[in-house]
Design a binder for these strands. Structure first.
Lengths: 231, 231
DNA sequence: GGTTACATATTTGTCAACACTATTGAAAAC
DNA sequence: GTTTTCAATAGTGTTGACAAATATGTAACC
């Protein structure tokens, strides 16, 4: 259920290599959509996909069904499937939910893990990331935050939470990545993560949860301020 | 996406009435599963369903895809689909997430609505429900709590949150209903809801959120204590 | 009597072809 | 020259049938 695998370029690719499994199909499509390889508004034609994956149209159709249920595409009767376009209200709604779920992940991770386990992450968010920030290495910052997210979700040890967060994250991935371009956002995010990590190293789950929630809320505020540049 | 409609008995029902739409199919199946009309472990045969709904098997298959993605059924290759059986760990995981999401709904509802709007609910949770409790009318209690839930979710005005909560609730509906049988549980739940409502009438969103979170956590504790009777 | 092997039957997985709807282009009328 | 109507086309929605795999029941053998 948790879509953990990393799809994308790989086998199949039309060359009569027997089509990929159904889960692979939704994962590949999901990947293309969340990475804006298929930007919002793109039409998804069943025929071309069925030919590319060497499978029949009903299999594509089945994949469309779950993609639609996850809110990644919209299907208009007799008109076909289109990649969902995010509206401002929807982004704010996503942030509202992410605010409590990401915070929950941090709290559970802190509760369920000995504080020492966060030493390496804490180290990563020390000198290495500060150096990266000074030289404007945003990629490194994004990688660190991604790693933090991943570790927290794994440590939270809650498959349902992981699936829900994945689903939320899918719909805002590019947006969140664009957000680091907002002046001062990355620096602020780094400081906030350092605070969260410190609380985690002290085993203070409630504090870590509150700080993480503040972090997401502050990200949402940044989005609001710069929304016309970001959407 | 938010599965708000109330499916079940209705049109179609095999009598050559042209099959129901795809969304109807997953809603009908969803309804049967969450109400334990199809208890955990039931086998879902594509052929009988396609005949009952007067549709072809690929349509059933597509519905199975989203049901599987939502975690309501499991599909074993070449073996078919069975209704998911809940494990204790999974129930606890669901409670952990519900704890923060239901609380979020209450906070957002309080923030986005004038306090007077809760007068009728507050009234309902006053004398009427106390009387019902005295005469042991559990149905009335369940109806009140359901109404509270519904009102909070609508007032929260967040489609993503509504969809996630629906999905969580689907997987534990019968369990939660059984929970009111636990000695003292209903009474405790009533008092907790009264406290939450008071906070809402005072416009104290943060307090209402915390109280609602405590309410769910206390429900989880009750489940833990009586899990061998409930599962 | 119990166990194993085989044949049958049921059920899932997959596909290719058919029917219907909407869009787009051209042609004719104003 | 502009607008309206109609036909052709492309693409979705749906169906039924076919192939592969598993479960079941029976018979033979130990």
């Amino acid at each position: 259920m948790a879509t953990g695998s990393i799809p994308g370029k790989n086998r199949n690719s039309s060359a009569r290599g027997k089509g990929p499994s159904k889960e692979s199909i939704v994962d590949i499509l999901r990947h293309r959509i969340v990475e804006h390889e298929l930007p919002p508004g793109s039409k998804l034609r069943e025929a071309v996909l069925s030919e590319e994956f060497n499978v029949s149209r009903p299999r594509i159709r089945e994949a469309f069904g779950v993609l639609e249920d996850r809110g990644l595409i919209e299907r208009i009767p007799n008109r076909g499937a289109v990649v969902t376009r995010l509206e401002v209200d929807e982004v704010l709604a996503l942030f509202e939910v992410r605010e409590v779920l990401e915070a929950l992940a941090v709290r559970l991770a802190t509760e369920k893990t000995p504080p020492e386990a966060w030493a390496d992450l804490d180290e990563l968010f020390g000198k290495p990331i500060e150096d990266a920030m000074e030289r404007g290495d945003l990629d490194f910052y994004v990688d660190c935050v991604t790693e933090f997210r991943h570790r927290a979700i794994v440590a939270a040890n809650n498959p349902i939470l992981a699936a829900q967060l994945d689903s939320l994250y899918d719909r805002t991935r590019v947006l969140i990545r664009r957000l680091v371009l907002v002046p001062g956002r990355a620096l602020k995010g780094m400081r906030q993560h350092q605070e969260v990590l410190q609380a985690m190293r002290e085993g203070n789950a409630e504090l870590a949860e509150q700080l993480k929630q503040k972090n997401i809320r502050s990200a949402r505020d940044s989005f609001c301020e710069y929304k016309k540049y970001l959407l």
